[in-house]
Structure formats: structure tokens, C-alpha cells
């Protein structure tokens, strides 16, 4: 299954800043919480994490050495 950015539902206030900033149109607010509905569109650009005023979105990177 394609991994998605993590949303901390306790921190998320549903303000919609992430949905407005998402270049891919992957995030919408569902029942007052940020939800990634267009999973194939998410390009992991981390803009949602950058703009979230509550620090409720996390785009984590696995760091590996090639080869």
C-alpha cells in the first residue's frame, strides 16, 4: 500500500491550510480533519507539513545510501 503523510488527528483543527496549499489536490477536509483522499496524486512534496500551523502533518523520509 502506498504510504501517505501522517495526520495527527488530535492536533489537526481542520483549518484547511494544507488543503489550500497542496499542489496535487490530494488533501481535503473531511469531518473537520485533514484527509488525503487522492493518494495517487500525493507527490510527498512536504508542503502540507510546511504550512500546517499546528504541526499536525508529517512527511517522513527514510534515508538510505544507494547500492
Amino acid at each position: 500500500m502506498l504510504e501517505m503523510p501522517r495526520v495527527d488527528l488530535e492536533k489537526c483543527t481542520g483549518c484547511g491550510t494544507c488543503a489550500a496549499a497542496c499542489h496535487c489536490g490530494a488533501i481535503v477536509i473531511v469531518e473537520g480533519k485533514a484527509t488525503i483522499i487522492e493518494t495517487l496524486k500525493c507527490g510527498w512534496c512536504s508542503v502540507c507539513e510546511a504550512v500546517c500551523p499546528e504541526g499536525a502533518l508529517y512527511c517522513e523520509f527514510e534515508i538510505v545510501i544507494e547500492g
Binding site: W44, E60, F61, E62, I63, V64, I65, E66
Partner: peptide
């Protein structure tokens, strides 16, 4: 480095 979605690959250590 190379950004591959949720992987950050060190291409030239």
C-alpha cells in the same frame, strides 16, 4: 542526493 517520494537516497556518499 535523490528525493524518491518518501525516500531520500544518498547517490554520491
Amino acid at each position: 542526493i535523490r528525493m524518491e517520494r518518501n525516500r531520500l537516497v544518498i547517490a554520491d556518499k
